[in-house]
Protein backbone atom coordinates (compact mmCIF):
# COMPACT_ATOMS: atom_id res chain seq x y z
CA UNK A 1 0.00 0.00 0.00
CA UNK A 2 2.83 2.36 0.89
CA UNK A 3 4.44 1.89 -2.49
CA UNK A 4 1.14 2.63 -4.22
CA UNK A 5 0.74 5.85 -2.31
CA UNK A 6 4.13 7.04 -3.35
CA UNK A 7 3.41 6.03 -6.92
CA UNK A 8 0.56 8.53 -6.96
CA UNK A 9 3.10 11.31 -7.22
CA UNK A 10 5.47 9.62 -9.61
CA UNK A 11 5.62 11.26 -12.99
CA UNK A 12 6.86 7.97 -14.41
CA UNK A 13 3.55 6.21 -13.74
CA UNK A 14 1.15 9.11 -14.10
CA UNK A 15 2.34 10.93 -17.21
CA UNK A 16 -0.03 8.97 -19.46
CA UNK A 17 -2.93 10.15 -17.29
CA UNK A 18 -1.83 13.77 -17.54
CA UNK A 19 -1.49 13.33 -21.30
CA UNK A 20 -5.01 11.93 -21.54
CA UNK A 21 -6.37 14.94 -19.68
CA UNK A 22 -4.51 17.46 -21.81
CA UNK A 23 -6.94 17.81 -24.76
CA UNK A 24 -9.97 18.05 -22.47
CA UNK A 25 -8.23 20.59 -20.26
CA UNK A 26 -7.26 22.67 -23.30
CA UNK A 27 -10.82 22.79 -24.66
CA UNK A 28 -12.31 23.68 -21.27
CA UNK A 29 -9.63 26.29 -20.63
CA UNK A 30 -10.27 28.03 -23.94
CA UNK A 31 -14.04 27.78 -24.20
CA UNK A 32 -15.13 27.80 -20.56
CA UNK A 33 -12.48 29.54 -18.46
CA UNK A 34 -11.26 32.13 -20.94
CA UNK A 35 -14.78 33.61 -21.34
CA UNK A 36 -14.94 34.04 -17.57
CA UNK A 37 -12.32 36.79 -17.87
CA UNK A 38 -14.72 38.48 -20.26
CA UNK A 39 -17.00 38.99 -17.29
CA UNK A 40 -15.04 42.20 -16.55
CA UNK A 41 -17.23 43.68 -19.29
CA UNK A 42 -20.06 43.72 -16.77
CA UNK A 43 -18.16 46.46 -14.93
CA UNK A 44 -17.31 48.44 -18.05
CA UNK A 45 -18.95 50.66 -20.56
CA UNK A 46 -17.65 48.13 -23.06
CA UNK A 47 -16.93 49.29 -26.60
CA UNK A 48 -15.87 46.47 -28.95
CA UNK A 49 -13.38 48.70 -30.82
CA UNK A 50 -11.67 49.69 -27.53
CA UNK A 51 -11.55 46.18 -26.10
CA UNK A 52 -11.25 45.11 -22.46
CA UNK A 53 -8.26 47.30 -21.70
CA UNK A 54 -9.34 50.68 -22.97
CA UNK A 55 -13.09 50.60 -22.31
CA UNK A 56 -14.19 52.83 -19.41
CA UNK A 57 -14.68 51.26 -16.00
CA UNK A 58 -18.07 52.17 -14.59
CA UNK A 59 -18.20 49.99 -11.48
CA UNK A 60 -21.63 48.62 -10.71
CA UNK A 61 -23.46 51.04 -13.01
CA UNK A 62 -24.66 48.20 -15.29
CA UNK A 63 -26.08 46.32 -12.33
CA UNK A 64 -27.79 49.47 -11.02
CA UNK A 65 -29.38 49.99 -14.43
CA UNK A 66 -30.58 46.40 -14.42
CA UNK A 67 -32.58 46.93 -11.24
CA UNK A 68 -33.84 50.30 -12.41
CA UNK A 69 -34.99 49.51 -15.94
CA UNK A 70 -38.61 48.42 -15.62
CA UNK A 71 -37.87 46.18 -18.62
CA UNK A 72 -35.10 44.31 -16.89
CA UNK A 73 -37.04 43.91 -13.67
CA UNK A 74 -40.02 42.57 -15.56
CA UNK A 75 -37.73 40.12 -17.37
CA UNK A 76 -36.27 38.81 -14.11
CA UNK A 77 -39.77 38.33 -12.72
CA UNK A 78 -40.95 36.55 -15.91
CA UNK A 79 -37.96 34.24 -15.78
CA UNK A 80 -38.57 33.35 -12.17
CA UNK A 81 -42.30 32.83 -12.61
CA UNK A 82 -42.09 30.68 -15.74
CA UNK A 83 -39.21 28.60 -14.38
CA UNK A 84 -40.96 28.10 -11.04
CA UNK A 85 -44.21 26.94 -12.63
CA UNK A 86 -42.29 24.60 -14.93
CA UNK A 87 -40.43 23.06 -11.99
CA UNK A 88 -43.67 22.42 -10.11
CA UNK A 89 -45.39 20.98 -13.19
CA UNK A 90 -42.39 18.78 -13.97
CA UNK A 91 -42.56 17.33 -10.51
CA UNK A 92 -46.26 16.63 -10.29
CA UNK A 93 -47.09 15.39 -13.80
CA UNK A 94 -44.33 12.74 -14.09
CA UNK A 95 -45.01 11.59 -10.53
CA UNK A 96 -48.69 10.97 -11.24
CA UNK A 97 -47.96 9.53 -14.67
CA UNK A 98 -45.46 7.06 -13.22
CA UNK A 99 -48.03 5.98 -10.63
CA UNK A 100 -50.65 5.36 -13.30
CA UNK A 101 -48.23 3.65 -15.66
CA UNK A 102 -47.19 1.37 -12.82
CA UNK A 103 -50.74 0.02 -12.76
CA UNK A 104 -50.68 -1.03 -16.42
CA UNK A 105 -50.21 -4.79 -16.37
CA UNK A 106 -50.07 -5.49 -20.08
CA UNK A 107 -46.38 -5.20 -20.93
CA UNK A 108 -47.02 -4.56 -24.60
CA UNK A 109 -49.32 -1.63 -23.90
CA UNK A 110 -46.90 -0.26 -21.31
CA UNK A 111 -44.00 -0.40 -23.77
CA UNK A 112 -46.07 1.23 -26.47
CA UNK A 113 -47.13 4.08 -24.19
CA UNK A 114 -43.53 4.60 -23.12
CA UNK A 115 -42.32 4.64 -26.71
CA UNK A 116 -44.73 7.43 -27.56
CA UNK A 117 -44.33 9.64 -24.51
CA UNK A 118 -40.52 9.64 -24.55
CA UNK A 119 -40.32 10.74 -28.19
CA UNK A 120 -40.99 14.51 -27.93
CA UNK A 121 -38.03 14.88 -25.55
CA UNK A 122 -35.66 14.22 -28.45
CA UNK A 123 -37.13 16.79 -30.81
CA UNK A 124 -35.62 20.26 -30.80
CA UNK A 125 -37.55 23.42 -30.03
CA UNK A 126 -36.95 24.54 -33.60
CA UNK A 127 -38.98 21.61 -34.85
CA UNK A 128 -41.56 21.87 -32.09
CA UNK A 129 -41.66 25.65 -32.48
CA UNK A 130 -42.43 25.21 -36.16
CA UNK A 131 -45.12 22.67 -35.36
CA UNK A 132 -46.68 24.80 -32.61
CA UNK A 133 -46.69 27.95 -34.74
CA UNK A 134 -48.64 25.97 -37.30
CA UNK A 135 -51.01 24.19 -34.93
CA UNK A 136 -51.74 27.14 -32.64
CA UNK A 137 -52.29 29.65 -35.43
CA UNK A 138 -55.50 31.68 -35.08
CA UNK A 139 -55.88 31.36 -38.82
CA UNK A 140 -57.30 27.87 -38.74
CA UNK A 141 -54.59 26.05 -36.77
CA UNK A 142 -55.65 22.58 -35.65
CA UNK A 143 -55.98 23.54 -31.98
CA UNK A 144 -58.05 26.62 -32.71
CA UNK A 145 -60.29 24.55 -34.98
CA UNK A 146 -60.95 22.38 -31.94
CA UNK A 147 -61.56 25.47 -29.79
CA UNK A 148 -64.02 26.76 -32.38
CA UNK A 149 -65.72 23.40 -32.59
CA UNK A 150 -66.27 23.56 -28.82
CA UNK A 151 -67.98 26.90 -29.37
CA UNK A 152 -65.30 29.35 -28.20
CA UNK A 153 -63.73 32.26 -30.11
CA UNK A 154 -60.17 31.59 -31.35
CA UNK A 155 -57.46 31.93 -28.71
CA UNK A 156 -54.27 33.93 -29.34
CA UNK A 157 -52.01 31.33 -27.76
CA UNK A 158 -48.83 33.03 -28.91
CA UNK A 159 -50.07 36.61 -29.20
CA UNK A 160 -51.56 37.19 -25.77
CA UNK A 161 -49.19 37.45 -22.80
CA UNK A 162 -51.12 35.32 -20.33
CA UNK A 163 -51.96 32.66 -22.90
CA UNK A 164 -48.31 32.70 -23.96
CA UNK A 165 -47.18 31.77 -20.46
CA UNK A 166 -49.74 28.98 -20.31
CA UNK A 167 -48.70 27.73 -23.74
CA UNK A 168 -45.03 27.77 -22.76
CA UNK A 169 -45.59 25.76 -19.60
CA UNK A 170 -48.06 23.33 -21.16
CA UNK A 171 -45.91 22.64 -24.21
CA UNK A 172 -42.83 22.17 -22.03
CA UNK A 173 -44.67 19.64 -19.90
CA UNK A 174 -45.94 17.96 -23.07
CA UNK A 175 -42.39 17.65 -24.40
CA UNK A 176 -40.70 16.33 -21.28
CA UNK A 177 -43.16 14.72 -18.87
CA UNK A 178 -42.55 11.30 -20.41
CA UNK A 179 -38.82 11.51 -20.16
CA UNK A 180 -38.95 12.86 -16.60
CA UNK A 181 -41.01 9.80 -15.69
CA UNK A 182 -38.05 7.49 -16.29
CA UNK A 183 -36.38 8.32 -13.01
CA UNK A 184 -39.59 7.58 -11.06
CA UNK A 185 -40.14 4.31 -12.94
CA UNK A 186 -36.58 3.33 -12.05
CA UNK A 187 -37.40 3.92 -8.38
CA UNK A 188 -40.53 1.75 -8.73
CA UNK A 189 -38.59 -1.02 -10.46
CA UNK A 190 -36.49 -1.28 -7.32
CA UNK A 191 -39.48 -2.16 -5.12
CA UNK A 192 -39.43 -5.77 -4.00
CA UNK A 193 -42.62 -7.50 -5.33
CA UNK A 194 -42.79 -9.51 -2.11
CA UNK A 195 -43.82 -6.34 -0.33
CA UNK A 196 -47.02 -6.23 -2.38
CA UNK A 197 -47.66 -9.92 -1.74
CA UNK A 198 -47.21 -9.43 1.99
CA UNK A 199 -49.55 -6.45 1.90
CA UNK A 200 -52.11 -8.51 0.01
CA UNK A 201 -52.01 -11.26 2.62
CA UNK A 202 -52.57 -8.58 5.25
CA UNK A 203 -55.70 -7.63 3.35
CA UNK A 204 -54.55 -4.34 1.80
CA UNK A 205 -56.33 -3.43 -1.43
CA UNK A 206 -54.53 -1.86 -4.36
CA UNK A 207 -55.22 1.69 -3.24
CA UNK A 208 -53.90 0.92 0.25
CA UNK A 209 -50.80 -0.65 -1.34
CA UNK A 210 -50.24 2.44 -3.44
CA UNK A 211 -50.39 4.67 -0.38
CA UNK A 212 -48.18 2.46 1.77
CA UNK A 213 -45.66 0.98 -0.68
CA UNK A 214 -45.61 2.66 -4.10
CA UNK A 215 -45.72 6.31 -3.08
CA UNK A 216 -43.19 5.96 -0.24
CA UNK A 217 -40.84 4.26 -2.71
CA UNK A 218 -41.01 7.32 -4.96
CA UNK A 219 -40.70 10.03 -2.31
CA UNK A 220 -36.89 9.97 -1.87
CA UNK A 221 -36.22 10.43 -5.59
CA UNK A 222 -38.93 13.11 -5.76
CA UNK A 223 -37.12 14.99 -2.99
CA UNK A 224 -33.85 14.77 -4.91
CA UNK A 225 -35.49 15.96 -8.15
CA UNK A 226 -37.20 18.83 -6.33
CA UNK A 227 -34.07 20.08 -4.60
CA UNK A 228 -31.84 19.74 -7.64
CA UNK A 229 -34.28 21.72 -9.75
CA UNK A 230 -33.72 24.68 -7.41
CA UNK A 231 -30.64 25.50 -9.50
CA UNK A 232 -32.93 25.95 -12.52
CA UNK A 233 -35.03 28.69 -10.98
CA UNK A 234 -33.64 31.19 -13.50
CA UNK A 235 -33.60 28.76 -16.43
CA UNK A 236 -36.95 29.35 -18.03
CA UNK A 237 -35.91 27.64 -21.28
CA UNK A 238 -34.16 29.83 -23.84
CA UNK A 239 -34.64 27.50 -26.81
CA UNK A 240 -38.36 27.22 -26.27
CA UNK A 241 -39.15 30.88 -25.62
CA UNK A 242 -36.88 32.06 -28.43
CA UNK A 243 -38.70 29.88 -30.94
CA UNK A 244 -42.18 30.77 -29.76
CA UNK A 245 -42.16 34.42 -28.75
CA UNK A 246 -42.69 37.64 -30.69
CA UNK A 247 -42.80 41.34 -29.77
CA UNK A 248 -46.47 41.08 -28.78
CA UNK A 249 -45.62 38.97 -25.74
CA UNK A 250 -42.28 40.48 -24.67
CA UNK A 251 -43.94 41.99 -21.63
CA UNK A 252 -45.01 38.67 -20.14
CA UNK A 253 -42.86 36.17 -22.01
CA UNK A 254 -39.40 37.70 -22.30
CA UNK A 255 -36.84 35.97 -20.06
CA UNK A 256 -33.26 36.77 -18.97
CA UNK A 257 -31.60 34.65 -21.66
CA UNK A 258 -33.64 36.02 -24.54
CA UNK A 259 -33.21 39.55 -23.17
CA UNK A 260 -29.42 39.17 -22.98
CA UNK A 261 -29.40 37.90 -26.55
CA UNK A 262 -31.51 40.77 -27.87
CA UNK A 263 -30.12 43.67 -25.88
CA UNK A 264 -26.56 42.39 -25.55
CA UNK A 265 -25.59 40.46 -28.63
CA UNK A 266 -27.98 41.91 -31.21
CA UNK A 267 -28.32 45.40 -29.69
CA UNK A 268 -24.55 45.56 -29.13
CA UNK A 269 -24.79 46.59 -25.47
CA UNK A 270 -22.18 44.01 -24.44
CA UNK A 271 -21.48 45.43 -20.98
CA UNK A 272 -25.10 45.58 -19.87
CA UNK A 273 -25.93 42.21 -21.43
CA UNK A 274 -23.01 40.61 -19.64
CA UNK A 275 -24.05 42.18 -16.33
CA UNK A 276 -27.51 40.64 -16.62
CA UNK A 277 -25.86 37.32 -17.50
CA UNK A 278 -23.53 37.56 -14.49
CA UNK A 279 -26.47 38.22 -12.22
CA UNK A 280 -28.14 35.07 -13.50
CA UNK A 281 -24.98 32.95 -13.22
CA UNK A 282 -24.30 34.05 -9.65
CA UNK A 283 -27.84 33.42 -8.46
CA UNK A 284 -27.82 30.01 -10.17
CA UNK A 285 -24.43 29.08 -8.72
CA UNK A 286 -25.57 29.93 -5.20
CA UNK A 287 -28.77 27.95 -5.59
CA UNK A 288 -26.99 24.95 -7.11
CA UNK A 289 -24.60 24.78 -4.17
CA UNK A 290 -27.48 25.09 -1.70
CA UNK A 291 -29.52 22.48 -3.54
CA UNK A 292 -26.69 19.93 -3.62
CA UNK A 293 -26.14 20.42 0.10
CA UNK A 294 -29.87 19.98 0.68
CA UNK A 295 -30.12 16.91 -1.54
CA UNK A 296 -27.26 15.35 0.38
CA UNK A 297 -28.80 16.15 3.75
CA UNK A 298 -32.37 15.15 2.86
CA UNK A 299 -31.75 12.07 0.75
CA UNK A 300 -28.06 11.26 0.97
CA UNK A 301 -27.66 12.07 -2.71
CA UNK A 302 -24.22 12.85 -4.14
CA UNK A 303 -23.08 13.30 -7.71
CA UNK A 304 -19.68 11.74 -7.10
Amino acid sequence: MRTRQRQGWKWKTTWPLHTMLLPGVAIVLIFCYLPMFGLVMAFQDFQPHLGFFRSDWIGLENFRLMFEYPDARQVIWNTFLIAFLKIIAHLIVPFVFALLLNEVRRMLLKRLIQTFVYLPHFLSWVILGGILLDMLSTDGGLVNQLVGWLGFPPIFFLGDGDWFRITVIASDVWKDFGFSTIIFLAALAGVNPEMYEAALIDGANRWRQTLSITIPAMIPIAVVVATLSLGNILNAGFDQIFNLYNPLVYEKGDIIDTYVYRVGLIGGDFGFGTAVGVFKSLVSLTLIIISYRLAYKLAGYRIF
Partner: peptide, 16 residues
Protein backbone atom coordinates in the same frame (compact mmCIF):
# COMPACT_ATOMS: atom_id res chain seq x y z
CA UNK B 1 -16.74 23.97 -11.91
CA UNK B 2 -17.71 24.63 -15.54
CA UNK B 3 -21.04 22.89 -14.87
CA UNK B 4 -21.76 25.32 -12.06
CA UNK B 5 -20.59 28.61 -13.49
CA UNK B 6 -20.00 29.93 -16.97
CA UNK B 7 -18.92 33.12 -18.66
CA UNK B 8 -22.27 33.26 -20.41
CA UNK B 9 -23.36 34.06 -23.93
CA UNK B 10 -21.53 37.27 -24.78
CA UNK B 11 -18.02 36.51 -23.43
CA UNK B 12 -18.10 33.07 -25.07
CA UNK B 13 -19.13 34.68 -28.34
CA UNK B 14 -16.19 37.09 -28.13
CA UNK B 15 -13.73 34.23 -27.53
CA UNK B 16 -15.02 32.29 -30.53
Amino acid sequence: FTMLFSGGLIPTYIVV
